[in-house]
């Protein structure tokens, strides 16, 4: 599937395009990882504060079907 690499040196324009794309990908990756850090922090806080599993939280009524 992967084509053999062409080892001839890249032109300046090609290098710039390559770097630009790498930078973009890194930026998106950074945003996703940052988001995951925040999400996992939030999940941890919620889980630590939670009562035992599936017990209704304080002050909320449990909605049950008849």
């Amino acid at each position: 599937m992967t084509q053999p690499f062409d080892n001839s040196p890249l032109t300046t324009a090609e290098t710039d395009a390559l770097r630009a794309r790498q930078r973009e990908r890194n930026k998106v990756m950074g945003l996703i990882l940052g988001f995951l850090v925040i999400l996992f922090f939030a999940i941890s806080i919620v889980k630590i504060a939670a009562k035992p599993e599936h017990a209704p939280a304080e002050g909320t009524e449990r909605m049950e079907h008849s």
Binding site: Q3, A17, L18, R21, R25, V28
Partner: peptide, 9 residues
């Protein structure tokens, strides 16, 4: 160039 370029996000 497409072969060495990393895929766009």
């Amino acid at each position: 160039q497409a072969l060495i370029m990393p895929a766009d996000w």
